[in-house]
Amino acid sequence: MNPPKAAIADRAELLAYAYAMENEAAERYQDLADQMFACNNDDVAELFARLAAIEAKHAKELVEVHGASPAPMAPGAYRWDSLESPENLPFAEMHYLMVPHQALQLALAAERRALLFYRDIAEQTDSDDIRALASEFAAEEAEHVRIVEEWLERYPPADNGWDEDMDPPMSH
């Protein structure tokens, strides 16, 4: 999941990766909220908007408290182990009829990937400074995981036929 151990050379690099991950997650959740609002799926849209606000706060703290640079590197310069930054929900996973439980399961998986990302860095590094910072970020992600798990309990799983549309775009 993570960039190889050698990839995180110093504090500035860890902050660059952390900022990219949190900022992209904030933008992605907001994009998904906008998509769901556009197709009148307000319940899911509101959840994504709340998650966007949490991630945006985290990204802002990285800049204001830790001094991360908000300037991105080239898209190909990030050595993510996955196609995108680990905390992004893939656009392709969306469905206009999805229910909050499904949305939150995707969010939970993303928050767990982010937690693992920082935890792996903390475990693999030889630098005390990087370990301390990565552990701090991992603790924040653990808190996000806890929040999403708590939200999940409030929503029932999707019924069979959740994606049935009485007025489908086209009948096959």
């Binding site: 998904l32 998509q35 556009a38 991105p72 080239a74 969306m94 999805m98």
Partner: peptide, 23 residues
């Protein structure tokens, strides 16, 4: 980190929200 470019993807996005189907 110095090689970072100052413009971000967001600077190229308009305020119109896409109406494409989710997914």
């Amino acid at each position: 980190v110095e090689a970072a470019c100052p413009l971000t993807a967001r600077d190229y996005k308009s305020d119109y929200k896409p109406v494409w189907c989710p997914g």
